Computed example of a mutant assay.
Amino acid sequence: MPKVLIVYASRTGESEKIANLIGEGIRIAGLEANVVKVTDIKKETDLQGYDALIFGSATYHGSMMDKMKTMLFMAEKAGLEGKVGGAFGAFGWSGEAPGRIYETMENIFKMNMVGDPLMLKSPSLGGGIKMAQEYGKKIAAKLAG
């Protein structure tokens, strides 16, 4: 069974909620999903052994959270080329973090990205729960082929 790793950096808990909802969507599709905090990723081997990886961060002062930036530098050595990928994040005003994560995964890591990054102000607003679950299902569908 394909395995998906979802790594999140959250400031107020909203990006964590989105990560868990994406995980639900992946599980609904019948795949395994592991949701972990960015601080739980200690070395590049923690990112290996997965068929897809999804990274997300809140946007804070116009950028992704520092711990996510650090993890992305480490991920560069993890051999993620060709793996299915996705990016997401919660934001208050500007929402740059998901796009920057997505572009890093696509252009530097050379991953096989799904659609566009998922950007939500909150998973509880405007259909956010369903949107996050559907994003997880899109990842699962891309893995299926």
Rank of each mutant, 00 (worst) to 15 (best):
L47W: 00
M65K: 12
I28W: 03
M64G: 07
G82R: 09
D46H: 05
G85T: 02
L72D: 07
R27Q: 15
M74P: 02
F91L: 06
G49D: 08
S94A: 10
A52D: 09
E81Y: 06
L53S: 05
T39L: 13
K42P: 04
Y50K: 03
A90V: 01
A29K: 02
V38T: 15
K77R: 12
Y50T: 03
G85H: 03
T70D: 15
G56W: 00
F55H: 00
K69Y: 12
F88L: 02
G62K: 00
A78L: 12
E44C: 04
D66M: 07
M65S: 09
G86K: 01
A87N: 03
N34G: 10
K37Q: 15
K43H: 10
V38W: 07
A75K: 00
G56H: 00
L47D: 01
Y60G: 00
A75E: 01
A52E: 04
A58D: 10
S57M: 04
T45K: 13
M71R: 00
K43M: 10
A97N: 05
K67C: 08
I41L: 02
D51E: 10
E76I: 10
L53Q: 04
G79M: 09
K77F: 11
W93R: 12
A33L: 08
V38I: 13
H61L: 10
L47Q: 02
E81D: 13
D40H: 13
M65F: 09
G82V: 04
A97P: 02
V38L: 06
K43Q: 12
A52K: 05
A78K: 06
H61Y: 07
G56A: 06
P98L: 05
K43E: 14
Y50I: 07
M71G: 11
D46I: 04
K83A: 08
Y50N: 04
T59M: 06
K37N: 15
V84L: 04
I41D: 01
L80C: 06
S94V: 14
E81L: 03
E96C: 06
F91N: 00
K77I: 05
L53V: 13
M68L: 14
T59A: 07
S94M: 11
K42H: 05
V36L: 14
I54M: 13
D66W: 08
F91C: 05
L31I: 04
E32V: 14
M71P: 01
W93E: 11
L72I: 12
I41K: 02
G30E: 08
G95I: 00
V35M: 06
K69F: 14
G95L: 00
G95N: 09
Y60W: 11
E76C: 12
I54F: 11
G30V: 11
F55A: 03
V35N: 07
F55R: 01
G89K: 04
G86F: 09
G56P: 03
E32N: 14
I54V: 15
K77Q: 12
G95K: 03
M64I: 07
G79W: 11
Y60L: 05
A75I: 01
V35I: 13
K42N: 09
G56M: 03
D40M: 12
G49H: 07
T39P: 01
F73M: 13
S63Y: 01
M64S: 08
Y60T: 08
G89I: 04
A52M: 08
T70K: 14
K37H: 15
L72Q: 08
